[in-house]
């Protein structure tokens, strides 16, 4: 260890400020890593619990109760199992993306993709959840909107925005509107949830959150953060318009790059 001789009080104060800054940076990095681990842990548990519960129940049925499901029951349960696996796969991919994006490794495979068809597909894939959430979807599209995008990432953007709208706007309609000109496409997703406080509107894209135990409220998790990073990678932009109590409108603009 080197010993630094400090000539006077001014130098001492400068040195102290530098040391304080280094300390703060190290504490911040450690805090970010802890928060990341907490988010990952929570998301993984949420993704895997339904599957294990489902399998355990079926095993008990067969091994302890001697009850073998009928063909129709089996098909219904296998269908649900398949959806749960697909959802868990999606959640895990989102976490992987989260990790990759944080380390600057998000690669895009650009191809001609129809945004309208992608959004329609996402809405169709959520029809059961929408029914349970008592949400109708009002989907406006001018027809095919083709751009040079990464198909999987575009699907993720639509999925995460719709999932967010369902989570916060359950019990009310969700409005999705697409529009485009030659240069860019616009995706708008509006819910009738509780809305977002002004000081949170940028924060929800700028940082990831997990549940806050002291408030008992679910946070936004990594979904919107990933959406923002993917949109940025496309050269686009995302913003949210909201007032507390009046829902939230997410607006995504994507260059078409044709």
């Amino acid at each position: 260890m080197r010993t630094v001789a400090v000539a006077d009080d001014r130098q001492a104060r400068v040195l102290q400020n530098v040391l304080d800054s280094i300390g703060a940076a190290l504490r911040g990095e450690r805090g970010t890593a802890d928060q990341f681990a907490s988010v990952v842990s929570h998301e993984l548990r949420s993704a895997l619990m339904p599957i294990s519960l489902f399998v355990e129940a079926m095993l008990v049925d067969v091994t302890q109760n001697g009850r073998v499901p009928s063909r129709d029951e089996l098909m219904q349960r296998l269908g649900m199992f398949k959806r749960q696996l697909a959802r868990a796969n999606h959640d895990l991919k989102r976490l992987l993306d989260f990790s990759r994006i944080r380390s600057g490794q998000l690669d895009l495979e650009l191809e001609d993709v129809d945004l309208s068809a992608t959004v329609a597909d996402v809405v169709a894939g959520h029809h059961e959840e929408l029914a349970v959430a008592r949400c109708t979807v009002d989907f406006e599209s001018p027809g095919a909107i083709v751009g040079r995008w990464d198909r999987l990432r575009l699907h993720q953007v639509a999925t995460n925005l719709l999932s967010n709208a369902i989570k916060y706007g359950a019990g009310a309609p969700i409005h999705i509107a697409l529009s485009a000109n030659d240069e860019s496409a616009r995706l708008v997703v509006r819910d009738h949830g509780p809305g977002i406080e002004a000081d949170q509107r940028e924060a929800i894209f700028a940082r990831f959150e997990r549940a806050h135990p002291t408030q008992h409220q679910s946070g936004y998790g990594v979904g919107l953060w990933v959406v923002a990073r993917i949109v940025e990678a496309f050269g686009g932009a995302i913003e949210v318009e909201s007032e507390p109590g009046l829902g939230a409108t997410f607006i995504v603009r994507l260059p078409r790059l044709m």
Binding site: M49, P50, L53, F54, A57, M80, V132, A133, I166
Partner: peptide, 12 residues
């Protein structure tokens, strides 16, 4: 609020 959990718990 997690649909997957509600669905599976409900089915079980």
């Amino acid at each position: 609020d997690e649909y997957e959990i509600a669905e599976v718990v409900g089915t079980v």
